[in-house]
Amino acid sequence: MIDDLVRSLRPDDVTEESHRARRADDLARAFAERPARKRPPTRLLAASGLLAAAAAAFVVFAPSTTVVTRPDPVPVGTPVLTARSVLLAGAETLERTRPEKGTYWHEKIRTFTSPLDGVTVASTAETWYDGRDGRIGATTDVRTTFTGDRAEKTWRAEGRPGLPEATKDQSFTGLVLAWGIGTKQVRQADLKKLPADRAALQKWLDDARPRGEDAGAFAFAAARHILTSPAPNATRATLLRILADQGGLHLDDDATDPVGRPGLAITDATGDHTLVVDPATATLLAYVYDGPDERPVDTPPGTTMIPIRQGTAYAYLESGWSDLPG
C-alpha cells in the first residue's frame, strides 16, 4: 500500500519527456569517445568462502601474520562484506600495525600498460631511496602478451609501441624522486609528514585536487601513491576511512591482482580507479586505471611527467624499509 503510493510519486512524465529530448545528444557525446575496452583481466578465484576469511582476517590477525587457512562455509547471518566495511577494517588493521623502521624505502613494482587493443606490456622496476640517495634498479622481466595474432601483427607493424626504455642499475645522483599528486609535487619527506587527522588530510587532498575533478575519484588516485609510500600507518588508515565514505563504491570480493595474487578489488564510482587490497594486511597489492588517457601537462624544467593511460596497472610486489642491496 505504502510502496504503491510511493511508486505513484515517480516522476514518469518528466523522465519520459527528458528521454526524448536528451537521447540524441547524450548518445552522440558518448560515441564521440573511443569505444569501451575491457579492463586488464583479473582472474577470478573459485568461490570458496573467501568472503568470511577476509572479514575475519582484517579484524583478528596481526598485519604481519600470513593467513593461509581455508575458512568454514559462510554461516547464516554473516555480515555482508561491502567496499566500505573492507576499507574500514583495513584502517583498523593499519592502526594496529607497528611502524617499520629503516633507511631506504624499497619499492618493487610491476607495471602493465596497454599501448594498443589486445596488447599488454609488462615490466618490473625497483627503487631504494632515502629521500636523497639510493639506487634505481634496471628494468627487468619485460614481457608483451597479445590476445591474438592480429593484435601482435598490428603491434609489430606500428613499431612495437609501449616497450619501456632499457635502463641499467644506477644511483640517484643528480635525480630527485617526486610524485605528482594532483597539483602537488610530493617528495619522500612530504609523504612522511602527511597528517593523520581526518580533517587535515581531507584538506590536503582538497588542496591538491585539480579544479573540476571528482573528489572521490581523486582520493582513489592519490591512494595509490600514499598507500605504498612511507606515510605513517595512521595516515594511511585515515585515507582508507576517507575512501570508505565515498559513495557508489563497487567491491569484487574474489578478484586477483594482475600478477595473480588474491585480493579484494574496490572500484570507485566513476569506474576509473581500482585498488586491490590484501585483506590480511591491508596492503595495497595493485592499482588499475581505467579512465581516459591523461594528457601531458607542462612541468617545471628538469622534471618529466609520465601521463597514465587507460588500461595501466601497477602491481606492488614489495614496499617497505630495507638496506641497500649488496
Binding site: D26, P35, A36, R37, K38, R39, T270, G271, G291, P292
Partner: peptide
C-alpha cells in the same frame, strides 16, 4: 553517468 557507463561498458 551514461558517459562513464560507455567508458566502462565492457565491464
Amino acid at each position: 553517468t551514461f558517459l562513464i557507463a560507455w567508458r566502462r561498458f565492457a565491464d
